[in-house]
Amino acid sequence: MIVFVLLSLLAIAGALGTILWKNAVYSALSLVGTLLALACIFVTLEAQFLASVQVIVYAGAIMVLFLFVIMLLNAQYPSEDVDPLPWLSPVVIAGGVVLAGALAYTAFLYKAPKPLAEAAKALQGGAPGPVGETLFTKFLLPFEAVSLLLIIAVVGAVALVKREPEAKVQRETLEERATHTPEEVVV
């Protein structure tokens, strides 16, 4: 129980950090903290394989991609202009608190279908072997579908980020460039 409380406090702290930091880099790093805490919670939930995948794929690959894009776009700082919807924050926070309360309340209405210890044993610790067995028998079709989805995502990402054909871009001549001050050239 102590472990759970500590880990969940860590996860919640990370989550709050994600939404409260003004700097996007800090936000992303806080989220990494939450994800790591969740990975540890997965271990306590008899899901070892998922815990490791969570660390490798989520906290590793996906978050690195995030940080990379933040750095690339130089987008870590929030914009300074006035919020056009000033009434929104209090409403959202109130709604969020009610939602959290309601969800937590419903959570405690849940009645376990069978004794926990008995059920947990059946999971075999969520090792890669048993998980893989389910994945490649009962979930074979979703598995293949997801592989297709990944290909589509790769193609889609390339198509989205691909630049317009060069011809449309007005290239600066060297003469023009020479007349600008360096600050003007930087877009």
């Binding site: 919807l85 959202v92 709604g95 969020g96 939602l99």
Partner: peptide, 22 residues
């Protein structure tokens, strides 16, 4: 046109629905 405005509507709806169910 503000996406967040629509999001809030969704949130309020969700809260209302869950509240009703409870």
């Amino acid at each position: 046109g503000f996406a967040r405005g629509y999001g809030v509507a969704v949130l309020i709806g969700t809260v209302a629905l869950i509240g009703f169910l409870i």
